[in-house]
Structure formats: C-alpha cells, structure tokens
Simulated assay, not measured.
Amino acid sequence: MYLYHYYDKRSGPFRSLTALSAEQSNLILEQMKKERPDSMCAKRDLEYIKKRRNCEAILRREFAKKGGIMDLDSPHYMVVEHSPWLSTWYEQGDFLKIPIDAFDTRKISFTYGDSMPTFSPKVQDGKEYRNQVYTYEEILRIIDRYGLPQEWNDDGAHGPERYIEAHVWTNEPISQITNIGIKN
C-alpha cells in the first residue's frame, strides 16, 4: 500500500492551513483564491478553515479513543493509493508517493472518504463508514469489504467517497523524505 500526497508545485508539499493561526490561514486562502482561481482551493468558502478545524477535533477525539498516537495537533493529509480526481485539484499539481511501511501506522488514522463529508450532518445515507475513524488494521478490513472508492466512484456519482483519507499525526518520515522543515 502507498500513501499519496497531492499539492501545488508553487507551494510545495505538506503545507497545512490548520497548522496556522485563523488569521494567517484565512489570508493564505484568500491569496490562493486570487492567484490560483482554477484550483479546488479557490472554490472553498470563508467558513472552510472553521469547518476543517472542527473536523480535525473530531478526528483527534475519535482516534484517541482507539489508542492512536498523535505527535501533532493538525495532521498531514494523504490518501490511500492514487486518486485520479485529486490529481486534478491543482493548477500545477504534483504528488509524493510513500510506502505505508515507512510510517508508524499507530500514528495514522483513516476515513473511508474525505473526513469532511464523513462527519457532515448533511450526509445521512446510513453507510457503516460514516462518522467513523479507523486505525490501519481497521481500514484494511473496510477496504476488503468495499474496495478503494476511486475504483468504483472516482466521478462521485455514487456518493461523496472518492478516496480513503489518511491523517498522518507525525512529521516522521515526511520530514526526511521531503527534506523540508515542517512546523506544526
């Protein structure tokens, strides 16, 4: 299994708006809307940062209940295997591909689909993976049961799940692989 991280080449990998203050993150979001109007980030509303922080609080709380280890307050976001849809999000898109074996999987939580719709009260379809955070061992069982969403729903026609989101709660091994100083 590989984890992928998609990003815009101009910004570089593993830049997190939620790792910044609310004021800084909103300024950067507004700047991206002006400078990168065709990117997915430019389509986010002004409440995005608040919603994302709320979602991260849920992820932290639920992962802690399962004994997850979190070195960071705000995770690095990755996805399980290649997502054709995510590869189109950035005007100058690129990605990093890291084998799962490079990570301490006790420091990674997963949602079957993006975490925002996973925990959204607007998505009420009764699927067992709604409102759920998974450990590595648990997500393997869910993948066995349902497969990878990008294989059966890359276009989003069957619901909001288009990939499996991985929340990496540590800078290791990311900081060594990318040779960048990550602050969080």
Rank of each mutant, 00 (worst) to 15 (best):
Gln24Cys: 05
Ala57Met: 13
Glu91Ile: 05
Thr111Trp: 07
Val133Trp: 07
Ile182Pro: 01
Ser109Cys: 14
His5Cys: 03
Lys43Gln: 13
Glu128Thr: 13
Gly181Pro: 08
Thr118Lys: 04
Pro160Tyr: 00
Arg60Gln: 14
Asp104Ala: 09
Gly93Cys: 05
Ser115Asp: 03
Ile69Lys: 15
Gln31Ala: 14
Gly93Ser: 11
Lys9Trp: 00
Arg44Gly: 01
Tyr77Asn: 07
Ser25Met: 05
Ile180Gly: 00
Glu62Gly: 05
Glu151Trp: 00
Tyr6Val: 07
Lys65Leu: 11
Asn184Asp: 08
Gln150Gly: 01
Ser83Glu: 02
Phe95Leu: 13
Tyr163Val: 03
Lys33Trp: 08
Ile108Cys: 07
Pro121Ile: 05
Arg36Val: 00
Asp94Pro: 09
Ile182Gln: 03
Ser25Tyr: 04
Gln31Phe: 10
Gln92Asp: 08
Ile139Lys: 10
Gly159Thr: 06
Ser74Ile: 13
Ser83Gly: 09
Met70Cys: 13
Leu72Ile: 07
Ile28Leu: 14
Asp154Val: 10
Asn54Pro: 00
Arg106Asn: 14
Ser120Cys: 06
His167Ser: 12
Asn153Glu: 01
Ala102Lys: 09
Ser11Phe: 12
Glu35Ala: 12
Ser25Pro: 12
Phe119Trp: 06
Arg60Trp: 03
Leu29Asn: 10
Pro37Thr: 11
Glu47Asn: 15
Trp169Asn: 09
Val79His: 04
Ala42Trp: 06
Ala57Phe: 05
Pro121Arg: 10
Thr105Met: 08
Arg141Cys: 01
Phe119Asp: 02
Gln24Gly: 02
Asp144Cys: 06
Val80His: 08
Met116Val: 14
His82Gln: 05
Ala102Arg: 09
Arg36Cys: 06
Ser175Thr: 12
Ser115Gly: 14
Leu72Gly: 08
Pro117Asn: 01
Asp71Tyr: 04
Ser74Thr: 15
Lys66Cys: 05
Cys41Ala: 14
Leu86Asn: 11
His167Thr: 09
Tyr2Met: 04
Phe14Tyr: 08
Tyr163Leu: 06
